[in-house]
Every structure is written in structure tokens, then in C-alpha cells.
């Protein structure tokens, strides 16, 4: 398991490549939101989370409620890299009978802790898990929940936030993928979400905000969050479509990916990996 920054940067690039490949098989998918989460997934699976592909359901594992469930590809890329799912699955997304549906599914896919897809519900589930853990005195494991910025428009998110703060669920760590776009347009054009960090603070969460593409910052802030006395939220400032052909597109939410797009992005990411290795060397 990589445990240093260059390795985590490389892992993020690999996860991006793999996620794009996964989407290229059906030919269309949630590219933008998968790309914005690559560094976060690299840090969570590459370093932070106490999970095991050999026993994906071990009772004392850290759990991840991937509430922005439509970004299955980036989670699947991580699960494949770490041996939870066989590589053969990766060519099958969205085919009938697949183990990899576009929205993550705990019943179908090893390594997925909860099925999501109807936005706004995951944080309540994560809060329930965190509450149960506190009742059981499980002090050293964490419940992570990844939500989208647009997802914060769902009122249920704030019901869960209020509950978590009231019950002091310090074992709950929320990560907001603040890529500033949603399905139709920029979040600012639809429902303004800023000031996000202050909103969470006002709801009594320990709130921080970092560059969501800086693996070192992500790692360090999660380790800090684990020590906090209150439930935590980390607002990740990200770019939807980061480091892929989709980054320059206005609409990059659910889009087609041509062979040309894929090849272009893979070349770019391979060059990035080489650059990381050169610096490391």
C-alpha cells in the first residue's frame, strides 16, 4: 500500500485512467464528478481507511457511504486497484446483470458499504452507523461520507447534519466534493451554496476547506479530523472533470466518451505519472 505523497499522486492519476476506461465501455457516464474525486479516493483507499479486500465485511472496518452514488466509476477504480473486485468487472458497467451499475450498489459489488443514488440520503445513513458505533463503544473506527456540493441542496442533508451535531458523532467525517457544478449548470446559477464551510460550522460541525486535488492536504486534514471532538466536514475545492478531456467542457456531468477522448486523457495522465516518477527518482 503506497504511503507517501508521490505514490498517492500517482494513484490518483491511475484511478482517473481506470475510471475513464470503465465509462468508455458503455460509452457514456458521470465523467466530471468521478474525476473531481480521484485524489480523495486515492487518499482514503491508499492510506487512510482501515479496510481489507480479503475481508471486505470485517466488523471493525472503517465504512464509506458514497452518497454521491452516480460517481460509481471512481469508487470502482479504487476497489479494483485494491483487489475488492476482479478486473473483468471493469468492462461491464451498466450492462444487464452487471456487478457495476452506474450508481453504487452494496448488494451487487464487494467493497461497497451502502447502495446510494437518490441524492441526499447517504449522510443520514452514515449518521446512523456512527451513532450505532458510539453505542457499541467503537472508538477507533470512522464512518466517512462523501457528498456532492449540489447534493447539499437536498434538505435531508441538513437534517442529518443537525442530528450528527446534536449527538456529537465525532466518528463521522464528511467530505464535500465542491466541484461547483451540478447536472444543469454551475451551482452558483441554480442554488448558491456559499459560504459552505461557514454553513457547516453554524450547524456545529468542525469545518475545514482545502484544495481537493492536493493529496497531502487531504491526508493531513483527515488525520486532523479524526482527532476532533465534533463531527467533521472537509470541503474539498475541486474541479469537475479534473485532468481529463472533460475538464474544459461546460457540460461534463453525464457525457459520452469517445475513443479519441479516452486516448487523449490516458496520454495526459501517463505523462503526469512519468513526471511524478521523475521527480521521485
Amino acid at each position: 500500500m503506497p504511503n507517501n505523497i508521490p505514490e498517492l499522486k500517482k494513484l490518483a492519476a491511475i484511478l482517473r485512467m481506470e475510471a475513464l476506461k470503465i465509462i468508455s465501455y458503455p460509452g457514456k457516464g458521470h465523467v466530471g464528478g468521478s474525476m473531481s474525486l480521484a485524489e480523495t479516493m486515492a487518499v482514503l483507499y491508499g492510506e487512510i481507511m482501515n479496510v481489507s479486500s480479503e475481508s471486505p465485511k470485517k466488523l471493525d472496518r472503517d465504512k464509506l457511504v458514497f452518497s454521491k452514488g452516480h460517481c460509481g466509476p471512481i469508487l470502482y477504480a479504487a476497489l479494483a486497484q485494491f483487489g475488492y473486485i476482479p478486473m473483468e468487472y471493469l468492462t461491464q458497467m451498466n450492462r444487464i446483470g452487471t456487478k457495476l451499475p452506474s450508481h453504487v450498489n452494496a448488494v451487487l459489488t464487494p467493497g461497497v458499504d451502502f447502495s446510494t443514488g437518490s441524492l441526499g440520503q447517504g449522510l443520514s445513513v452514515a449518521a446512523g452507523m456512527a451513532y450505532a458505533d458510539q453505542q457499541d463503544g467503537l472508538n477507533n473506527r470512522y464512518i466517512y461520507c462523501i457528498i456532492g456540493d449540489g447534493e447539499c441542496q437536498e434538505g435531508q442533508v441538513w437534517e442529518a447534519v443537525m442530528f450528527a451535531a446534536h449527538h456529537n458523532l465525532r466518528n463521522l467525517i464528511v467530505l464535500v466534493d465542491n466541484n461547483k457544478k451540478q447536472c444543469s449548470s454551475y451551482t452558483d446559477n441554480i442554488i448558491k451554496l456559499e459560504p459552505i464551510e461557514e454553513k457547516f460550522s453554524a450547524f456545529n460541525f468542525d469545518a475545514t476547506r482545502i484544495d481537493g486535488h492536493d493529496v497531502e492536504a487531504i491526508r493531513d486534514i483527515i488525520l486532523e479530523a479524526q482527532k476532533q471532538p465534533n463531527p467533521s466536514v472537509i470541503v474539498l475545492d475541486t474541479i469537475k472533470g479534473k485532468d481529463s478531456f472533460a475538464e474544459k467542457l461546460y457540460d461534463n456531468h453525464h457525457i459520452p466518451i469517445t475513443k479519441q477522448d479516452l486516448d487523449q486523457s490516458i496520454r495526459f495522465l501517463q505523462e503526469k505519472i512519468m513526471a511524478i516518477e521523475t521527480v521521485k527518482g
Binding site: L123, S124, V125, A127, G128, M129, A132, D136, Q156, A160
Partner: peptide, 21 residues
């Protein structure tokens, strides 16, 4: 647990607790 006037969250909490056994 009194989940308050927040039924959607209440159901989610219960489902998360169920996932924890």
C-alpha cells in the same frame, strides 16, 4: 432516540443502524 421533526433523516438513521447489525 428522538430524531425530531425529521422523518426522512429518521428512516436513514434506522437504515444505517440496521447496516451495523
Amino acid at each position: 432516540i428522538n430524531a425530531g421533526i425529521a422523518e426522512a433523516n429518521m428512516i436513514g438513521l434506522a437504515c444505517g443502524m440496521s447496516a451495523n447489525g
